[in-house]
Design a protein around this nucleic acid. Sequence first.
RNA 1: UGGCCUAUGGUGUAAUUGGCAACACAGCUGGUUUUGGUCCAGUCGUUCUAGGUUCGAGUCCUAGUAGGCCAACCA
Length: 561
Amino acid sequence: MEETTKSLNFIEHIIEEDLEKSYSKNDLRFRFPPEPNGYLHLGHASAICLNFGLGERYGAPVNLRFDDTNPAKEESTYVEAIKRDVAWMGFHWDKECYASDYFQQLYEWAVQLIKEGKAYVDSQSSEEMAQQKGTPTEPGVAGPYRDRSVEENLDLFERMKNGEFEEGVHVLRAKIDMASPNMLMRDPILYRVLHKAHHRTNTDWCIYPMYDWTHGQSDYLEQVSHSLCTLEFLPHRELYDWCLDELVASDKLRPKQREFARRNLSHTVVSKRKLLQLVEEGVVSGWDDPRMPTISGLRRRGYTPEAIRNFADTVGIAKRENLVDVSLLEFHVREHLNKIAPRVMAVLDPLKVVITNYADGSEEWLEAENNPEDEKAGSRQVPFSRELYIEKADFKEEANRKFFRLKLGGEVRLKNGYIIKAESCTKDTDGNIIEVQCTYDPKSKSGSGTEESLRKVKGTLHWVSVAHAIAAQVHLYDRLFTDENPDGHKEKDFMEFVNTDSLETITAFLEPSLKNAKVGDRFQFQRLGYFNVDQDSSPEQLVFNRTVTLRDTWAKMQQKK
RNA sequence: UGGCCUAUGGUGUAAUUGGCAACACAGCUGGUUUUGGUCCAGUCGUUCUAGGUUCGAGUCCUAGUAGGCCAACCA
């Protein structure tokens, strides 16, 4: 069925226009081209959703291409991590490609360029070349090697390839226009000598092509129709087209580069370099620390691929500067988890409650609905007994009527259980409340259908039975940065805004049904938030991560006061 | 003394390509609720400025203003 209502983004408009004019639907092909020099983050997730989303929309293949032209920074461990993350997001790539697969072809095209007098070997230092390059406001000037003969260039380039020179002695440059208003057109470097082993080609090569001499050609070789990248590559487009002009055959599709604005997320940074710094300086435990905006971090935090994809879809794509509020991301993970996460009871900050009229030593198992949003989710049993834990924040000796929770002389329902009334409480020598004594109404049991069970009481609390509770380690996460835009200050480094309280580790008490929770399982701890089982968890010591809290209008009211 | 890109609520995107500014989030009001969750209803805008073209401009033109990008043997 064709959708008619959904509006198009500007990339889709371009494609629709191309489809009307010169392209057929079968011509469409996309690619996601990460450099394997780090882990994928939310910014990449947007690009992934854009390219693979286009593939799904038009029934077009999408390649996963590793842009691996710089052996100094790239490793195969990153290749594996990237593949894992893209697959986890739920996308399927057509071909797995590597720019390094094209090294021979790229080399031959470079030789062709030299023969046509459009490339030359420069033998100056990078400083000298930078000097001649001019500035954005001043034109550059030609260097002394710009007019070397084709024969000499061919010979030198051959010897560069054969490993006769040290790094930095010679480079191959395109001969374009040293006075171009576009700095990238002032004889860009095409090849440099690098005596480094490459993660795939090992030591087969000691000259490596630069990005600009690789990307468009790779797109062309794969017959990618629309090559989408972020806005900072816009000035590269002229060069991208120049390179393509040199080699596109008339019967082949000519790729098109188009640019979109990168997504910025509030209260975080999305730059590989900065994320690496957080890892290296030990601010976080690794690339997959649940506070990191990496895909692996979000996965460990308990986010679902659906949530991330829905987030990317609603944010959309455009060409202007932006700073998306994290609350939108949080909305989407709550929206999805609300539908799929089983409800359980857990107490994070325990206060003991004793039901004085409940027989000591006896217990009963109460029926609890697993998910009110999903009838098929069924129910489970939770144990009730004389001694329980509730949250400290759920009891006050006295409070006004806006406080729907337990107070002395007041009644409250225990979720799935009975209505209880607080009669008294005891305190330690510092005046802290350490225990509340309550009575329960035996006829008020949830679901029993009695008149008493149907009574309306304002508050409902979650709880666990002390004797049956499982102690577990729980990580509570907060935003990694205190500033909305840590990256957006010219005077201050983003590291100054690191939130030193972004992780709190506590011991919580869980209902016993959680005993067999497996790594990755997601739950809603009722009234608290969504939590998942961390990879470091074991049956002996359960470890949970808080994905996100529930929306909390009560907390907001408190804050305003 | 440059070139290029961008400008729509607090945030992010739309607007049948010149025809009633829409959707989502956030906020605020209420209602429902055995989760202060979910759900439901309501509310929140001089489309950066000034001119111009037109019956009609967020959209086209001109000028201005503001922000961003461009001088790695990185991608």
